[in-house]
Amino acid sequence: MIRLAAICACALLLNCVAQASAAQVLRLPSHAQTITENTAFPDSYALPTGPFGDGHLPERVVEGRVTRQTWRIPTQGITTLQILAPLRTQLDEAGYEVLFECDTRACGGFDFRFETEVLPPPDMYVNLADFRFLSAQIGNQSHIGLLVSRSENSGFVQLIHVARAGTPPSSVARPDPDDAPQEPANAQETPEAQSLAQAIQQNGHVVLSDLTFDTGSSDLGQGDFSSLAALADFLAADPARRVVLVGHTDTVGALDRNIDLSRARAASVLERMVTLYNIDRTQLAAEGAGYLAPRASNATKAGRDANRRVEAVLLGTP
């Protein structure tokens, strides 16, 4: 009886260690909501290694300690590439080798989605018209299947991690960025970051000129915007810095509606900053000015395009 109790205690301890290890594989944005997390040992996972074609999905069955996790990222207008890219960077930094990566049609579309393992709703949501998948490994010790998708208002992430029995937890752990040695901010700043920092400190505000919005829409356009990366560098360099993101519109529509729309655009940018760059929400605020502060004539399309913008306004030290 004593021996049986000891065996059960050891099994429980190993399971706890396994769950702690899996949680360290990736670092999600601070406001990502965990939907599900479970670990099974021993277990197996059919890891996709190629696109669906000719009625077949290439797979490699891997066995070990299998952890399945899903998250929801409540951010409007985020793209699947913007979700996947920082996670892929983390895997690369942790020593993972990418085996296969694809987006919707290149994966095999509908067939890929229903041939690979996906946790059932509401644990995971997959938009059949917009998803991405990545599989990666560290030798034969650790394997990853990463699936991302999005709805109109949220991003979704599914991670299936298989660790070979006996793999130390530290092999997939990533250091907390707050604990890592920090180089001087200027040593790592890009020219764009230096230019934005200089402009906002000299003038008190700066236009995030590469952002795009369609008429009547509060959704930030798809793509990587260098102005957001530069603003993130500026804020990260000094946690005491605070900015207000102020949205502006063209003159199409009533003033009240445009003020609401411009505030929603600023809020969309704020969420992108928090989601993609892990900027503390206390450093950001969102407001709207509607069409009351144009930078160009609204009589031309080019002028209206220029007026649909978001500016970052530097606040004084509290």
Rank of each mutant, 00 (worst) to 15 (best):
A106F: 10
S151E: 08
L255V: 04
A296T: 02
I35E: 12
T49G: 07
Q198N: 10
R164M: 06
P177A: 03
A299C: 01
R65S: 09
A286D: 03
L245I: 02
A20H: 04
N298K: 04
Q194Y: 02
L91S: 03
D280T: 05
E59N: 08
E183L: 15
L315T: 09
A312S: 05
A23N: 08
V25N: 07
A23K: 11
V98F: 07
A237H: 04
A187P: 01
L119Y: 07
G108H: 11
F156H: 15
F133A: 05
P177S: 05
R242H: 15
Q201L: 10
G53L: 13
A173V: 01
A299Q: 13
I78D: 00
V126S: 05
A193K: 09
A46Q: 13
L99T: 06
T116R: 11
C10K: 14
L211V: 04
A187R: 13
R68C: 00
S154K: 09
F213A: 06
L284P: 05
A193V: 07
I160L: 10
R88V: 06
D179A: 14
E59Q: 15
A185I: 03
G50K: 11
C107V: 03
T39F: 09
V148F: 08
T190P: 07
A9N: 09
A264Q: 11
A229W: 01
G204T: 01
R308N: 07
T275M: 12
E271P: 02
I279E: 01
D224P: 01
P74F: 11
T215M: 09
Q82V: 01
I259L: 15
F110E: 10
L84M: 15
S227M: 05
A18D: 13
S209K: 13
G77W: 02
E115S: 15
E311F: 00
P294V: 09
A185V: 10
Y277S: 03
G95I: 02
S226R: 14
D130E: 11
D54A: 15
A306R: 13
L13I: 06
P58R: 09
L119M: 15
Q24V: 03
V62M: 10
E287K: 14
C16M: 09
H143E: 04
S170W: 14
G288P: 07
M124G: 02
Y125R: 13
G303T: 06
N153Y: 11
A236W: 00
S171H: 12
